[in-house]
Design a protein around this nucleic acid. Structure first.
Ligand code: FES
Ligand code: FES
Lengths: 144, 144
DNA sequence: GATAAAACATGATATAAGTCATATTTAGGA
DNA sequence: TCCTAAATATGACTTATATCATGTTTTATC
C-alpha cells in the first residue's frame, strides 16, 4: 500500500505527537530506537518532513524534533504525499492516462468508490486525531 | 497501488480475454504492441502467469497465448497475488506484526472497512466479469 | 526427419527504493 | 570565545524492481 518510507514517517510523527512538545524535544538517536527504524534513514525522512513543516526541529545542544500545534493539523495523506509523491494515490489503477467516469478502465467502477472512501479518510484524519485515538486506547502502536 | 508488473499482467490478460481463444492464439510479439508493454518484460510475466494457470499457451508454429474457460475464472486479486505477492494486500498498513481488531494500529480503524471492501471487490471479480464489462461498454481499455 | 516459429529459461543491465557513512552548520553552555 | 551536541546536507552503497538480450526447448508443417 504505502512505501516503507511513508510508514516510517508516520510512525515517527505519531511518536512525536505523543511524546514531544516545544519543551520536550526528541533526538533522532532516541526516536529511531523507539520506533525501530534505521537511524540514518530516519534522519533523512525527518529532514524532509521538517522542510515541509510536518515536524519542527531545532539544532544544537538541547535540540531535537517535536510537533507544534500547526504540525498537528497535518493529515495522514499530506504526509504520504510528501514522502511518496501523489502518483500512487491519485493515478489510475492501471496507469491509464485519462481516468474518469466517462472512460473508466475495467477496475475503475469496481474499486473507485471504496478507494475514494479510503483516501478521504486519510485526507480528513489529522495527526492530532490519530494521537487522540492512541491516548484514548482506541488504537495502539506496537514497536514491531 | 499495484506494481507495474501487475498492471501489465492485468492488461495482457484482459486483452487475451477479449481477443483470444483456443483457436485464436496471440503471440507476445503482437500482444506487446497492442497493450504497449515492453516485449521481453511481457514474456516473463506471461510465462509466470502460464505457470500459475492464469493463461494458457502452446509452443511452436501457430502457437501463442490464449485463455480457456478455466483461465477466465481467475480473479483480479489472484493475478495481483501471483505477480506482486500477498504482502502488499494482506499486511498492516504500517507493517506492524499483529494487525487485528484487538490491537489495531492508528490507521486500522480508519481504513480497514473501505480497504476490505476494495479487496473483496477485487477477489470476487473474475477476468470473465471484467471482459463482459468491456464487451458491454461499461468499461474501456485505452492503449495508453 | 529437417526446418522454422513459437514459448520457455536464464542471466545481464538499468533505474528506483532503501540503507549507511561522513562532513557541515547551528546553537547552547562553560 | 570556544567546545560540544544536535540537526542538516550530501553522497556512497545495497537491494529490489523494471527492462533488455540471448540461448534452449517444443511442435506444426514440409
Ligand atoms: S480509469 Fe483506471 S482507475 Fe480510473
Ligand atoms: S493493525 Fe495496521 S492495518 Fe491493521
Amino acid at each position: 500500500m504505502f512505501t516503507n518510507s511513508s510508514k516510517y514517517a508516520l510512525k515517527a510523527v505519531l511518536y512525536l505527537a505523543l511524546h514531544s512538545d516545544e519543551n520536550k524535544k526528541i533526538m533522532v538517536k532516541d526516536l529511531c530506537e523507539r520506533i525501530n527504524v534505521p537511524k540514518a534513514y530516519l534522519s533523512k525522512l525527518l529532514q524532509d518532513l521538517a522542510r515541509h513543516e510536518v515536524v519542527s526541529s531545532s539544532k544544537g545542544p538541547k535540540g531535537g524534533f517535536y510537533l507544534n500545534e500547526q504540525n498537528l493539523t497535518m493529515s495522514v495523506l499530506d504526509i504520504v504525499h510528501i514522502i511518496d509523491g501523489r502518483k500512487k494515490t491519485e493515478s489510475c489503477l492501471l496507469s491509464l492516462e485519462d481516468c474518469s467516469r466517462h472512460k473508466p478502465c475495467p477496475l475503475h467502477n469496481l474499486v473507485s468508490s471504496s478507494r475514494n472512501e479510503m483516501l478521504n479518510s486519510l485526507k480528513d484524519k489529522t495527526v492530532k486525531d490519530l494521537s487522540l485515538d492512541l491516548k484514548h486506547k482506541k488504537a495502539f502502536l506496537p514497536l514491531a
